[in-house]
Design a protein around this nucleic acid. Structure first.
Length: 276
DNA sequence: CCCGGAACCTGAAGGC
DNA sequence: TGCCTTCAGGTTCCGG
């Protein structure tokens, strides 16, 4: 379930170990993890290159390599990146191992095999589709309002659409909508100016708080040192089906929206009265 | 275009 | 004990 706060936490904790060193080996223990081409070709592209920078865009980690190559990693739902001193044995669900010249291995551990690895000199093919970064200064209320205006789908669906806004997933979308007191089923283009401003503030608050807590460990997510995040302890509705709403005590409701569990308070997040 | 649903995977947890 | 169902969620694809 890595979303923006989890991926950014991983980026920050991996950075001092990864940047400035060389890749000495790359093993793909499950071949399907390489999403563009053959694992052998991906390995050739990685070998002996220097990691010059480690960035993030939405839920993608971006390792910038020498010779203008890029290693893109998406952890999808159950992936983790773990730091290990060589040559310890990798844990059971390790799908890829990136070995570094400084003596550390970066392990991609992923029970469900959803995570993807791309090694390319054309990262924009993947990244240019993504919407704005919600924690960037350029993500203003005005930008959000313009995005919402273009979508008739439920606001929850628009929030988790990576081409609309990058990095928000299921948990933080539910939390932001609860904080803004907006029903997840409301069509995005029916939000009032005030509601959109409230939502804008709520998005930034829940993502920033998640980041401060080093991400939410509801299931598989662990940080590169193996420790968990604590953001899940602050969740008010996400994964809280049946629990009393922290504001009014009404049981939190779970519905399925686009195949995903959606949690909200049916009282605090009532459909607003007809706009016209 | 817009939407819902399935598929990709596997494990945990709960019901009977 | 053990089988069956549901839940978990990021993304892509397919059909209506």
């Amino acid at each position: 379930m890595p979303e923006l706060p989890e991926v950014e936490t991983i980026r920050r904790e991996l950075y001092p170990f990864a940047v400035g060193t060389n890749i000495t080996d790359a093993k793909f223990l499950w071949e399907g993890i390489v999403h563009n081409g053959e694992p052998d070709e991906a390995k050739r592209r990685l070998l002996n290159r220097t990691i010059k920078d480690l960035g993030r865009r939405g839920k993608y980690l971006i390792f910038s390599l020498s010779d203008n190559y890029f290693l893109l990693i998406h952890l999808k739902m159950s992936g983790s990146l773990i730091l290990r001193k060589q040559p310890e044995l990798p844990p059971y669900y390790t799908r890829a191992v990136i070995s570094l010249a400084n003596g550390w291995d970066i392990l991609l551990v992923d029970p469900r095999k959803f995570a993807t690895v791309i090694v390319t000199d054309r990262p924009d093919m993947v990244l240019s589709k993504l919407g704005p970064e919600p924690l960037d200064n350029k993500f203003t209320p005005k930008v959000l309002i313009e995005i919402l205006r273009q979508h008739r789908s439920p606001i929850k669906v628009t929030l988790t659409d990576q081409e609309s806004i990058a990095g928000i997933g299921n948990m933080y979308a539910d939390e932001a909508l609860f904080r803004a007191k907006i029903n997840p089923l409301r069509p995005a283009n029916t939000l009032s100016f005030e509601e959109a401003e409230r939502l804008h503030r709520a998005i930034i608050e829940v993502l920033s708080k998640g980041l401060e807590s080093k991400g939410a460990s509801t299931r598989n997510y662990v940080r590169p040192d193996g420790n968990k995040g604590s953001a899940q302890l602050n969740f008010q509705v996400a994964h809280q089906g049946g629990q009393p709403c922290p504001c009014c005590g009404t049981p939190i409701k779970r519905i399925t929206l686009r195949g995903r569990g959606t949690y909200f308070c049916p009282d605090c997040q009532m459909d607003s009265p007809k706009l016209f």
